[in-house]
Amino acid sequence: MCGLSHNQPTEAVLVSDLTQLQLLKELEPVAENELNRHLSLAREWHPHDYVPWDQARNFAAMGGEDWEPEQSQLSEVAKAAMTLNLLTEDNLPSYHREITDYFSPDGAWGTWVGRWTAEENRHGIVMRDYLVVTRGVDPVALERDRMTNMTKGAHSDDLSGLLKGVAYVTVQELGTRVSHRNTGKACNDPVADRMLQRIAADENLHMIFYRNICAAALELAPDQAMEAITSVLVNFDMPGIGMPNFRKMSLIMAKHGIYDIRQHLDDVVWPVMRKWNIFERNDFGARGEKAREELAAFLEQTELDAKRFEEQRERFLAREAARREKASV
């Protein structure tokens, strides 16, 4: 029985979007499975095991010597990348608040939020200990920026609801993994590289949790999920965008291959698109198809932007090399 009387028009019946509560209820078994998978794979580690404590010495307040630029063994690129990545990690209280809003404090959702927060907190601990002990950056400037950054907090006004939130953190966690791995190489220090590889491994496991929740959402509510994914990708910004000197530091990182538009597209966006079978699916309605078309156009433009950036970077690096060569003569 279709439930329509004979005098009713036989046009398609509109299907209402699932509410936040319905999404959480339907996806909770997936969240529980993903939480158990994560707990079976996550490796215990301790921040103090990744810090070269034998390099530590007192600062002036304790009878030692305060920081001077020549004490740092990091390049300007590595300093910018380490500082930006650490300040991003520092805003964990804001991220915890927002992800709690996406999810539920109960059941698998609540357990995941607590576990994720505890794991993420280690990243800021170990990175700051490393930088202070090795005198990699000015600790006074770093602390002032931390105070400014955390006072302002991180706010994602466009990420209301579970679907946008999960889509965003999938991309953000993978992007953070790429950034940490490349920063480790730029530090030219095996201790820093080992530390950041360890952090990147955490970020990858976090990404898999969110990516698989999003995949399940695409099966449950294809059009809703596709609209959320498109909205997130078209408007995506990394979470540190409002921190002190963000533009300067992110530009240095992009120019020197730590994290740029090409890496964002090829190493972050396309891998999750392929995992979700975005351009192979046949279960979208009109809304989902429209969102997919919008995303396809955006990705095409982003590819052009990436090529343009690479050309500009080649010219910049060539000029920089020429200046160094001239200065050495």
Rank of each mutant, 00 (worst) to 15 (best):
K290T: 10
R144H: 14
P69R: 04
E310T: 08
S94A: 13
L265M: 13
A291F: 11
L159K: 11
A60Q: 11
L18Q: 02
K275T: 06
A228E: 08
E44L: 02
E11C: 05
K185N: 06
D101K: 07
N282L: 12
G242F: 05
L295G: 04
F59W: 01
K290A: 13
T148I: 13
A215Y: 08
R37C: 00
E143I: 15
G136T: 15
M253N: 13
V272N: 09
F309E: 09
I213E: 03
R319D: 07
W276I: 15
W276P: 15
A327C: 13
R292P: 07
E227A: 13
A291P: 06
R313D: 03
H96K: 14
L205M: 09
D49C: 02
K307A: 06
R135L: 07
E289A: 14
A31Q: 03
R324K: 12
D193P: 01
R43S: 03
D189Y: 00
G124M: 10
N277L: 08
Y130E: 06
L87T: 13
S40P: 03
D106S: 14
Q312K: 09
L265W: 12
K164A: 12
F209L: 07
D193K: 00
Q73D: 10
H96I: 10
K164E: 13
A318C: 10
E11D: 08
N121W: 04
A81Y: 10
N149E: 15
K185F: 04
K307W: 14
E11S: 06
M207I: 02
A167M: 09
R315P: 07
A31V: 00
M62E: 04
M195I: 00
P29G: 02
D266S: 15
G110W: 12
G110N: 15
L23P: 02
D145Y: 15
L205W: 04
N91R: 11
S179L: 10
E294S: 14
G285P: 12
D66H: 04
V329C: 05
V171H: 14
L18E: 03
R262F: 07
A61D: 02
F279M: 11
E34R: 05
E119F: 03
K185Y: 03
D17S: 03
L18N: 03
R308Y: 05
R146K: 14
L205R: 01
D90M: 07
Q73G: 06
W276N: 14
R308G: 05
D193V: 00
L84P: 13
N33L: 03
R313P: 06
I208H: 05
E34M: 01
A225Y: 13
E300A: 10
G153I: 15
W67V: 05
T183A: 02
L233N: 06
P105R: 08
D189I: 00
R211G: 04
D157V: 10
E203S: 02
E44D: 02
V166M: 01
S5M: 09
L21H: 07
L218Q: 06
S231C: 15
